[in-house]
Design a protein around this nucleic acid. Structure first.
Lengths: 212, 212
DNA sequence: TAGATTGTTAATCGATTAACAATC
DNA sequence: TAGATTGTTAATCGATTAACAATC
């Protein structure tokens, strides 16, 4: 059992960027990387990087740093990215297309197996090698694919309805790209991705830069 | 001058979701809304909502709540969403298409005026009523459009290069959808949008749910 | 009026940062 | 060896939450 309770949300969110830097180092043939180096690259404090990396259980060598391969494996393990997450995506628009073509996901254990839509113009098409089915086929396909995750890229109005259908079909984790706060049973996990909040931060920074 | 220094990053990130709830209330014809009600809707603590809303300067009435219209205007003002942000998007792929078609952005002051790409198959096309230019035209177009923001949806390898071109062209704010940590001069604002970190959180929650 | 909700002040909680001995 | 970097323990910082008088 991993000591996952010890990892805070901010730490978990930073791990992927560490992984990115460490994988670059691996690609360059490095076998060790120091927390200081990672911190420099990402403009963070070295102490924060060390603290965060501690949750992986990998111990570093003073003066030398952390073993790159072990660190990569440990982060994958910690993030559960060494396991395949079979997902379906509902709403086969351009955002779905973007997510289905995102090359990083397959390497990180996320496999988007099929898309669903109600638009007859989209049903039957193939996106990035994966079929687009009518939403009616959701339950049937989720079972056949043994998918446990649903990614929601539908319009806001249908978000709650689609979420309920997905849950009925046996989905236990939802990655929600709509701006709707979904109401789900307690055992279902929802992660909401909110573009507006990123834009809000950017926008406030602009206002402050412009000296108001 | 607004007391923007008093708003923490978490508060800023929550404001858009408050706005969403409050605008729904306005659409239903409500003239007042309580912090408790907003909190219920978003599964937050009432005290947190009250604290957050305090930064807008709008005062509520005990027992009744906050005046809906004033609150909406104040949040728009605070987030700088009452001002037009003219933006260009570089990398005219499916993510760019998704962002250009996101109906919320125009209402929130974000106007994506043009897209840029190096792919001859994309240059000259029109996405959502906006032209796709060759990247060569970036400087010229940014000036003509008097755009101050660039949205980056290019492949990682070209991210740093494109960012530098955008800055040379006069861009002062970058919304970065690549997984590259950009190196920019201190006066340039960068907001990095990281899908991996959301996926990391979801994935760790799944692992914990599955009882490991 | 009664009681739900507000704004404020204080307490708690948790994350970040600092300090430093150990060590490669 | 000398000194950069580690892991740990303690201090600081900031955000969330609690308490409560004021009030519509």
């Amino acid at each position: 059992m991993r000591a996952s309770k010890l990892a805070s949300l901010p730490t978990i969110k930073r791990l992927p960027s560490y992984l990115h830097v460490i994988e670059n180092a691996a690609r360059e043939g490095r076998t060790f990387i120091s927390g200081t180096m990672i911190a420099d690259e990402l403009e963070l404090e070295p102490i924060q990087v060390r603290k965060d990396l501690a949750i992986t259980g990998i111990v570093g060598k003073p003066r030398i740093g952390f073993p790159v391969q072990n660190l990569i494996e440990a982060i994958y393990g910690f993030l559960h990215w060494d396991t395949c997450h079979r997902a379906v995506i509902v709403g086969a628009g351009s955002l779905a297309t973007a997510l289905m073509g995102y090359p990083e996901f397959p390497r990180r254990g996320l496999s988007i197996e099929a898309a669903f839509d109600t638009d007859p113009a989209k049903v039957g098409r193939v996106i990035n090698g994966k079929p687009v089915y009518h939403l009616d086929k959701l339950a049937e396909r989720v079972e056949k694919l043994s998918a446990s995750m649903a990614i929601l890229t539908v319009p806001s109005q249908s978000a709650q309805d689609v979420a309920e259908q997905a849950i009925m079909a046996g989905i236990t984790a939802i990655w929600n790209f709509t701006n709707v706060k979904l109401k789900v049973p307690p055992q279902v996990i929802v992660q909401k991705e909110d573009l507006s909040s990123g834009y809000a931060v950017l926008s406030v920074k602009i206002r402050m830069l412009n000296g108001e």
